[in-house]
Amino acid sequence: MTVVVCGVEELPRGSIMTVMNGDTPVVVARTGAGEYHAVRGWCAHQGAMLGGGRLTWLTCEDARGGYALSRAGEILRCPWHSFEYDVTTGRCVTDPKLRLRTYPVRVEDGNVLLDVPDAT
């Protein structure tokens, strides 16, 4: 089923929006580069609602042993224990066993559209 999430202007770069597919939340994210991604909204760790979390960057070490920030708005951090998910793949950055289902998102006629399985 394809659903209209919102108008493109309602989801600025670096922000997220939660939509419900039946009882299942889907978090739609727009990255810093402007791409759209969607993941299942329950954290695979202890089940927090990821829509209450934050979209952030990937934090790595730079050449001088300091902080290197990249991929702005591609990492979704859980509101509880702060595990990090890559919204482009649904994978948890630190635990390969934890993975969120992803859904296709596209833009048509100024609207953000999401393809989700029919809610039962």
Partner: peptide, 14 residues
């Protein structure tokens, strides 16, 4: 499908 202001804040299962 709805946009939610007050979604449950956790997975209610199990």
């Amino acid at each position: 499908m709805t946009q939610s202001a007050a979604v449950l804040d956790h997975d209610p299962s199990p």
